[in-house]
């Protein structure tokens, strides 16, 4: 998992709950380049890329799904504790939401 090094990652930020619906933001353009998702912010024109786990999450939130469903899917695909995945993904989603790559509702 790429985003698990944060010390606070074991605490789930209050923003994201199991029932939170995660969706792709319409504010970015995306393309897949050799398996990696690259993006452009339509408003700011800035480019950024998602790492392997970010790219995987991106592919799993179309159609939009709840945080719990996303974590269930990742837990089935990756060899890691569900709680660890949930904590890591929570941090990553927070960051992606801050850049308006994903929307939380």
């Amino acid at each position: 998992m790429a985003a698990g090094s944060n010390e606070n990652s074991t605490e789930t930020p209050h923003l994201i709950a199991d029932v939170t619906v995660i969706s792709r933001s319409p504010a970015v353009l995306t393309a897949e380049v050799s398996g990696e998702i690259v993006m452009m912010s339509i408003e700011r024109g800035s480019y950024f890329g998602l790492d392997d786990i970010g790219s995987d999450i991106w592919k799993r939130i179309e159609p939009p799904c709840t945080f719990a469903a996303l974590i269930d899917g990742l837990a089935a695909a990756y060899d890691a504790e569900r709680a660890t995945i949930a904590a890591d993904v929570c941090v990553l989603l927070d960051r992606m939401a801050a850049q308006d790559v994903v929307r939380l509702a």
């Binding site: 380049v33 050799s34 990696e36 690259v38 480019y47 950024f48 890329g49």
Partner: peptide, 10 residues
């Protein structure tokens, strides 16, 4: 590759 390649081209 990936975003490094796209960014360098840009």
């Amino acid at each position: 590759s990936g975003i490094a390649a796209v960014g360098a081209l840009r």
